[in-house]
């Protein structure tokens, strides 16, 4: 009895170690600590562009003057858009200076949220939803199709600097699963878009990549031509008539 238990346990332990070395699937694009590199170190100068400076002022005006630190997330977002989709240390330091807190308080926020990228991403950052509904509908195939087509690993940038693929948790589009998001940093913070492409297939995502590479615009939303928005494929099957008005007592009767 004991021997069998022990054998079973050993088997379990072996099983754990036999798994692929990538045990933890990191959602963030970077480590939780900073390593100096030529394009990312605290000595590089960084400041908001003139156009963004007025935006900073506008964002700061939303918060009382004694709670400037509340602006940390919108400012980090703006800085990320301005810097081509990722936040170098010097950008975070610049944000800390604007909101008058110690830099570590900004690092804490930036490392907490996975949508702040702390390593370089492509001009088009493709985020594949990996949460259960999308996964059931084939998000893993979509991701592997993208990675294979672009020839990169997850969170790696293509050689031309155009694309990177990341994973994202549920973006609330489960009805049209699977879906990807394209964060477009090619035009700075002015032309920044963040579009959902839903009902994608492994073939369709490759087409989307090629369209983006050619710089063509494609309408966001569902990629299934038979579907309008999030309605059912081929038109409604229920709720075909006008809905009944809510019940109301006969007002004339009284």
């Amino acid at each position: 009895m004991l021997a069998r238990l022990a054998a079973k346990r050993l088997h379990e332990i072996r099983h754990v170690f036999r798994q692929s070395p990538q045990v933890s699937r990191s959602l963030s694009t970077a480590l939780n600590y900073h390593i100096d590199s030529p394009d990312n170190n605290p000595d590089l100068p960084w400041e908001f562009s003139d156009a963004n400076k007025s935006k900073v002022k506008e964002i700061m005006s939303h918060y009382p003057s004694n709670y400037k630190q509340s602006a940390v997330i919108p400012l980090l977002d703006l800085a990320q858009q301005q810097h081509g989709g990722w936040l170098p240390v010097s950008a975070m330091n610049a944000v800390a200076k604007v909101i008058e807190v110690a830099p570590i308080r900004v690092f804490e926020v930036a490392t907490f949220y996975s949508m702040f990228n702390r390593t370089k991403v492509g001009k088009y950052h493709l985020l594949v939803c990996g949460t259960t509904p999308c996964m059931i509908r084939g998000s893993r195939e979509i991701e592997s199709a993208l990675l294979k087509h672009l020839g990169v690993k997850r969170n790696e940038v293509t050689k031309d600097g155009l694309f990177s693929v990341g994973e994202m948790e549920c973006m609330g589009c489960c009805v049209n699963a699977p879906m990807i998001t394209v964060a477009d940093y090619s035009n700075g913070s002015e032309g920044y878009t963040y579009n959902y492409y839903e009902d994608v297939t492994p073939e369709r995502v490759v087409e989307i990549v090629e369209l983006l590479r050619r710089g063509e615009k494609l309408p966001p939303g569902t990629q299934n031509p038979k579907r309008t928005k999030c309605g059912p494929e081929g038109g409604n099957t229920t709720l075909l008539s006008e809905p009944k008005p809510p019940l109301c007592r006969d007002l004339d009767a009284c």
Partner: peptide, 10 residues
Amino acid sequence: QDLGVLGRGS
């Protein structure tokens, strides 16, 4: 103000 909590979850 040097130390902070970085990252999230596990």
